[in-house]
Each structure stands twice: as C-alpha cells, then as structure tokens.
C-alpha cells in the first residue's frame, strides 16, 4: 500500500465553504469501524476528481467532496455522525 494521502486539514477549505465554519476540529465517527477522531485526522486523497477522506483505522471512505464550478457534492455515507463544537 502506498501513502498517497494528506491529513484531514486538506478538507478545511471546501468544508468551510459548505458549513461556514472550521470543520476540521469536528469529531467524526466512522460508520465502518466506529473510529472516533477529529476530521483533521482523516486520510485525504486529493489527487483525484474530488476529495476522498478515509478512516485512518479501517481505510473505508468516510467523506467525499466534489467541487464543481458553481456547486458542491458532499457524501457522508461513511460517517455515522459528526460532533461539531458550537459556542455555548
């Protein structure tokens, strides 16, 4: 297996654009293996037609973002939930 990935901070720009907040500090749970960790810890394959984020534990796809010129697609099928810190 090769290491063609970067860390989840590579998702920051596209997710900021969609959620209007920094999502890299959000905590996600992998729907495949239950791994729980910050979005920043995901393995992101970015030399692709979109961003593909995989679980650092089981390597299943947990999140995908495709950015078109005037729209984006976000696939979270592989994420059981995202815990997002909000101001109290």
């Amino acid at each position: 297996m090769s290491n063609d990935y970067v860390d989840g901070n590579a998702l920051a720009g596209d997710l900021q654009e969609i959620f209007a907040m920094d999502m890299t500090a959000a905590t996600g749970r992998c729907a495949g293996c239950g791994y729980r960790g910050a979005v920043a810890t995901l393995r992101v394959y970015q030399r692709a037609p979109g961003l593909v984020a995989r679980c650092p534990s089981c390597e299943k796809v947990v999140l995908r973002v495709v950015r078109g010129p005037d729209r984006a697609w976000l696939d979270l099928r592989g994420t059981l939930n995202l815990e997002i810190p909000l101001p109290s």
């Binding site: 063609d4 030399r47 692709a48 593909v52 995989r54 390597e59």
Partner: peptide
C-alpha cells in the same frame, strides 16, 4: 497519478 485510495 490520480487515486481515490491506497494502491491495491
């Protein structure tokens, strides 16, 4: 090389 995951 474009890839969406580890190289099998």
């Amino acid at each position: 090389m474009l890839t969406a995951g580890p190289t099998p």
